[in-house]
Write a protein that binds this DNA or RNA. Structure first.
Lengths: 149, 149
DNA sequence: TCATATTATTGAATAATATTCAACTATTTA
DNA sequence: TAAATAGTTGAATATTATTCAATAATATGA
């Protein structure tokens, strides 16, 4: 047995997919060469970043989802981008934004359960120098990544 | 001229992509039939929801991104899911979650600019019966949908 | 424990699909 | 309005996914 699934999930989170030209062509009632041309154009213009999969996170051991609003300690206040890039490296982190308002950073984090979430927070507060932090746990996800659940 | 791009972007937001089995096979150094089998298994088990594109939103007229935290008026308080589903229908809405904490709903909204954002808010507050609302504008996106920008 | 059933792996054959190409059309530019 | 550029398209080709059948590994149950 070759436990390939976790590797596939990892690859699919970021890319390793490709457009279905024939199906789109049929749907839009255009020749597939026309669709092909237009997709390549979108890619050339860098409008498309990646082709990837969206998961039923409950079914892949990432059933817990939290929005974390954080402030940085004064030491790091000047360079939030650097910190944000570090945060982004974690594969459990779905998104990282630097935002306006009472908090500087919003992290969307997907973990297996509350234990894993707690472990993340414990380390993150120390490592990234968060000062004020609040979390909002997603009780119900209606739409993610533009996909209705 | 056939202005196909907007239609493609719409389709790619939700799906119309497919895995690149051959490339994954090469990467993982496994036969493509093995990769194929394992992907189909993930789909059968409903672990994969969709295959879609991620965009450089700045390049597709969705350069403005806001996190909206909202409370519902007492009238709707009992059925936030119904409201959330309505909110999710808007293609500018990337995600909708019902969450713990001071606010009931988090919306991630992508608009062309602040004007479009303002128009959305004006209508949304009325239509969905938001009471307290705060917005956090994303000044810099480091990672979205698991994809580093 | 061992027989049987189920699940997983894989190479070879086939079917489906993307890609290239060249001719043509529409649009933009100067 | 001529020339250049960008977009459309059918036919040919190259890639790739899919099916299939054989085999191997693992799980199940008496």
């Amino acid at each position: 047995m070759k436990d390939i699934s976790p590797k596939l999930i990892e690859l699919f989170k970021e890319g390793h997919c490709t457009p279905q030209i024939a199906r789109i062509a049929k749907k839009l009632k255009e020749p597939s060469t026309t669709i092909h041309y237009n997709i390549k154009k979108l890619e050339r213009e860098e409008k498309i970043k990646a082709y990837k999969a969206v998961f039923n996170y409950k079914n892949i051991d990432e059933g817990t989802c939290n929005f974390i609003l954080a402030n940085l300690k004064d030491d790091n206040y000047g360079d939030p981008e650097q910190i944000a890039s570090e945060i982004a490296k974690n594969p459990k982190v779905e998104s990282v934004d630097i935002v306006t308002g009472d908090y500087e950073i919003i992290i969307k984090l997907r973990t297996k359960d509350n234990d894993e979430y707690y472990e993340y927070m414990k380390k993150a507060i120390k490592r990234f120098g968060f000062s004020k932090v609040i979390s909002m746990t997603s009780l119900k996800q209606i739409k993610t990544e533009f996909v209705n659940l």
